[in-house]
Nucleic acid binder design. Structure first.
Lengths: 252, 252
DNA sequence: TAAGATTTGTTCGTATGTATC
DNA sequence: GGATACATACGAACAAATCTT
């Protein structure tokens, strides 16, 4: 398919082979998160390789979030479920050497956030609505200092992260959550949102209030509409900010 | 922020600490892909740790695609750029234990593919247009067998992957490429697209022909429109297929 | 082609750390 | 607190890959 003339294709290292074998093993047996994997000694015997090699293999899997290990009796390696945070971090690495502008992020957000809002209309429990209100409450009073301003922006991104968490479509939810995460880091570490524009910011809060209403009443069209306005507003707010990009490595 | 009462928080393993240190080192010095990292012997001296520990640290970084190593003279560890394929694979792991239906995928595609098409209108070189045509050429003749049918569907997904590759918005491009990748794997390994519907399929090809025209002429609105129709058609084609989800582990 | 130099890859034996009972 | 079971870490030697001459 995509090979020219069977290029070099170096032999894969043994830890790598072991890691692949373990993954296949997990898939074939349909193991679930928390299920136990063979211990070190066991693997040394099974694969006929040294302890170091086996350990390196486990590190490969650990870095991907696929296994977790514990020491002590009853310890060992277990199948792990990749957390959203870890997946965010691994994905952020991909963009580290690539240029992604704020506007690039909003180009995606404008498309997906309204869709998520619409899909959520009428499907949130009163507890979930309550959670959203609780987050909103944190930025009802006007910010006085630049630090407060930043904190409020982070909270408003948390609002979107919550909506992402509530999404039934895990794919849609992940992407939105990832974007909120990136914007949060940019807000905290860079001087994003440097110049507050209070009028526009108040408009933004009104959007969220209206959005919660639409979600509660189960009006998908209105939820989509409100969120779209909200995104377009935010995008305008960010207009000057450009070229500031994702420059970070995995946190975990 | 999110801690209850400073929970256990076990001490991090040494390889993990070393990996973190190396990442910071790369970030602080602004190292670029291909840049050389200290050799094993050097690190053993710097960190005052054993060879095995250092090697495990490198494996952690390797699994994330952040470093590459080569043996022999002039070999060693180098800063690596995370490839799209690797990022796809790492991300797919996140969805392994989560339910993502075909329709979930299309809910995102319907929003993003038209946007990408519009953004690309009038910005493709004639070489790029040629590449797209070359791919399309592969499925102009009606498929006779089920295998041919599948191969054609894979090629048509390659068409979308190419558009993703051409995207100037790396974020948008990545997501679209990821979805094309997932659908390709589902097509190849599961019996997705099992029942060919020739009439709808021909419509799909016409869409792509029209799309190329719109891209060449630099008509974003038409490009968006055509792609949207194309997506809605594809979504309808997949209507019956549901619950088939991402069940696989990392490939490379 | 072949030998030597350089750097990562692998092994084994031993010792230490850590959590459970 | 002590015994147990497990991962974690060290060090020295050897193997394999690859570049240079």
């Amino acid at each position: 398919m995509k090979r020219k003339s069977d290029p070099p294709q170096r032999k894969k290292s043994r830890p790598y082979q072991v890691a692949e074998a373990i993954k296949s093993w997990v898939v074939e047996r349909g193991l679930q998160p928390g299920d136990r994997l063979p211990g070190e000694a066991d693997m040394i015997a099974r694969f006929g390789m040294s302890k170091g090699t086996i350990r390196e293999a486990m590190r490969l899997l650990q870095a991907q979030g696929l296994v977790e290990t514990k020491t002590g009796p009853g310890g060992g390696s277990f199948v792990g479920e990749v957390s959203a945070d870890r997946a965010h971090a691994l994905l952020a690495n991909y963009f580290y050497f690539r240029n992604v502008s704020i506007d690039d992020i909003y180009q995606v957000r404008v498309q997906l956030e309204p869709e998520n809002a619409a899909a959520l209309a009428g499907r949130l429990s009163s507890e979930q609505i309550q959670e959203l209100r609780a987050i909103m409450a944190r930025y009802q009073t006007p910010a006085e200092t630049a630090d407060e301003e930043r904190a409020q922006h982070v909270d408003s991104l948390l609002f979107h992260a919550k909506l992402a968490e509530f999404a039934e479509n895990a794919l849609l939810g992940f992407i939105i959550g990832f974007l909120a995460q990136i914007l949060t880091e940019l807000t905290v570490f860079k001087q994003l949102y440097a110049e507050p524009n209070h009028k526009l910011w108040r408009e933004g809060r009104d959007h969220q209030t209206n959005l919660i209403e639409a979600l509660r009443e189960g009006d998908p069209d209105r939820a989509r509409e409100v969120m779209l306005e909200h995104m377009e507003l935010a995008r305008r707010l960010m207009e000057d900010q450009e070229a500031v990009v994702m420059k970070r490595f995995i946190a975990e």
